[in-house]
Structures are given as C-alpha cells and as structure tokens.
Design a protein around this nucleic acid. Sequence first.
RNA 1: GGAGAAAUGGCAGAGCGGUUUAAUGCGGCGGUCUUGAAAACCGUUGUACUGAAAGGUACCGGGGGUUCGAAUCCCUCUUUCUCCGCCA
Length: 425
Amino acid sequence: MLELGLLKSNKERTIQGLKKRNYSDEALLVIDRILAEDEARRNAQVELDNNLAESKRLAGEIGGLLKAGKASEAEAIKATVANLKEQAKDLENAMKVASERLEELLLSVPNIPHHSVPAGKSAEDNEVYKAWDKPLPVLAPGAQPHWELAKKYNIFDLDLGVKLTGAGFPVFRGKGARLERSLINFFLDEASRAGYEEIAPPLMVNKESARATGQLPDKEGQMYYVERDDLYLIPTAEVPVTNIYRDVIVDEKDFPIKMTGYTQCFRREAGSYGAHVRGLNRVHQFDKVEIVQIAHPDSSYEQLEGMIAHVSGLMDKLELPYRILRLCGGDMGFTSALTFDFEVWSAAQERWLEVSSVSNFETYQSNRLKVRFKDGNKTRLAHTLNGSALALARIVAALLENNQTPEGIRIPKVLQAYTGWDIID
RNA sequence: GGAGAAAUGGCAGAGCGGUUUAAUGCGGCGGUCUUGAAAACCGUUGUACUGAAAGGUACCGGGGGUUCGAAUCCCUCUUUCUCCGCCA
C-alpha cells in the first residue's frame, strides 16, 4: 500500500510514476480523491477527539460530585454527556467511513516505479539489462523438449499427477526427484553462504499475512484457499518469510536482514492452458528457494544489486545461458518499485523462460507489514526486497533440454556432489 | 474433539467500576561516582493518529455490549496452559 505521506509530500512524483504505469488522466483523478478522503478523515478525527476529551472531563466531574453527595448536580451533567455521546457516534462513523474509503483507494494504487524503470506497455518493452553474449547451445538433431525427455528417462510424470490430484501437479520420480532435491539443497547452501538465514516456514498463512505482503486483495484468485480453516496456501515463501517481521520495529544495526526459505509454492493460474504452458513451464505446485531482505532505505538498492549478483552466480554455476531484463512500467508487478527478471534459455523450446524475479518494494510492502526502524526519535518504514533463487520447475526444464546428449542428460559439475551421479540415462 | 484455567508495557508482575496521565521489579538508554568496569544513586524508557506548538485522542489478546465513567462487569472469537481423547 502506497505511503500516504509520500503521496502528500510529493504529488508530482506520484503522478509521473503512475504515468509510467500508463495511467490515463482520468485514472490519475484517484490521487485527488485520496487527498479529499484524507482531509475528511482528519477533520472528523479532530472533532471526535475534542468531543471525547470533553466527555472524559465531565465523567470525572460526575465522579467527584457523587462522592461529595451532590447527586442532583451529577444528574444534570449526565444529560450533557449523553448528548455529547450522540454526536460522538456520528463523528466516529464519519471517521470510519472516510478511513475505509481512503484505504480502499490507496490499495488500488500501485507502487511508484523507480526512476530507472523504462516506460512501456508490455513485456516487449522491457529493457535487456544484461544480455547473454556467448553463443546459445546448439542441440543435436532430434533434440526433445523437456516433457518428452521426462517420459524417455522417467524423470517426472504429469499424467500421474492428474490421477493423484489434477492438471499441473507433476510427480517427480527416480533421478528426477533426486535432481529436484539436489537443486533445492544447492540453492539453500548458496544462500546460506551468502549470509541469508535459512527459514522453514508454514505453507499456509492466514488473511493477515496474505494481506500484509499484498497478495490480498490483489491476487486473491491466484491462491488456493482452505475455507474451513480460513487459510491460504502460499504462492511463494515471500509471504510467510516476510511476515516474520510484520509489526516489528527493527534495530537499525540489524540491517540488512537477510532470510532464505525453501517452500513448495501453490498457484491456481486459473484459465491458462495451451501449448505455451506445457510440461513444467507453468504448474500449480512447484519448488522454489526465495531470498528476502529487509533493508535500510538508504542502502536497499545496493542490496538489490547484491541479490542480482547472487542469482547470476547461481545461473553461472549451473552453466545455464540466461539474460536479465529490467521490467518496464507496464510489465512490472503491482507492488514493486523496480524488478529484474532472470530468463533462462530453453534450447529445445527455443525461447526464454522466466526463472527469477528480483524486486525492491521500497516501503510499499512495509507500509502494510509495518516493518519499521528508529531513525533518531522518528519511526520510519524499512524497505523490503525479495527474489527467487531460484524457481525449480523451469530450471529443471532448461537443464534437461540444454544438457541433453545422445548418451543422456549431463548434470552440471556443481550439482554432482548433491546428485551423486553425472548423467541421467 | 471434551473439561477447566488464563491472556496487562521488552520481560516478570500488581490493579478487578471513578486522580491509572497502568504500581513495583528486571532489562534498555542517559548521567553522577570511578583510571576503567561493577555496585550504588539520579533521571529516562511503548505504538498510532491528530495538532504549527502546547497539547489532545485511541490502544491492557481481537470484536461487540452494559455504564455518566471499563484494564476491571457481560457476550463472542482467537490464542496459551493443565487434564482427557485422537494421532505422524
């Protein structure tokens, strides 16, 4: 949720930011509506506070009079207080209505893009931040996409997943299951080495948590929901891990807080079927290691650089061709101020697949989370950042496709210590 | 799932209808003393909104109610503890 103070102190910056997200002049009117509701709320509060202060004072007076045995005088004041109370009801209501409207409006406004975010409408306008400058792998004739390879080597089985659960729930088996576990361990070990504390969080969260990181109300339809217990299956470890610091005032010397977590991720991905989502390209359940940071506003972009370097290192070690995109205003997530996407080259499909998204949310998320720190005697919102390091399903897809040889699928050196073998055949 | 008890500031813990602007202790921070530290002593010590400021308002697990007045009484939900049941 956008910080109201930021919007008030720099309306022009907010307008320019929203224009980068392709807001029309008409849509920009939301800003004036926000300012109007804010004023209505403040006015109602000032009146209410005065009313309550007077009631409180009179109630004390009644106590004194009753003790002194002046019952009739006390009765007279009671009437006045009753009258004040009637008015208080209306004021309270006015304040509540204005607050709710204000919040609703604020929630409808996305984060203000960082100044480096390029203008643009769609994925095609994203800026290539770091291109792959070496040759892309050329596969031998007869090379297959990963879903064919999966059948050939019995690595994972989507049809079996349909039997057990439904479409989009792969069953990994044999060397495929081992490869999955190896990648998870490799990613976690790398993150630990880079100073991230390992967290093993719950896979279900309550409404409060989903709201605080911005999944609610924005992405409600994307999450699996357990109605009976009012819980959501997490779409990413970001949700439980970031929420560890919900309502926490962090000691400034603990910055940056770095956490990593492996979880399975659950996404409904309603309505997306077809050739472009075959195999592991898009599934309802997948494994992901996430890195999360809570940082001082002055150094959050430095930390973002560090996260990009970390993810780049993973790709290098896995010997996978990749590129980094700086997302344009039109393609960036609702809550992000700056996002870099990592895409891996899928040789058999001959296309780039998104495997990581690294973002700085500045105070957009922390405003909901209320992660703060003391700056002198002021309390300020911290910055939150997160990124995938990495998402498994598509990495597996790329690994299988790019490393296929007539003899079998070659395993990158760095993973061999985890798998215990160097080829899937 | 059943029965009982409880939830108060960073922690411990008093208060159980009217100067509570929440006692006291511990911890934290600042200071005195000291070569330094400890001890002792003094001061200070939440969050949010509002206001130019002084100040005001709200918050004693969450929500609702009774009352002129609620941390205190009532209802409800949640959580924790004890016992029973079930169980990887």
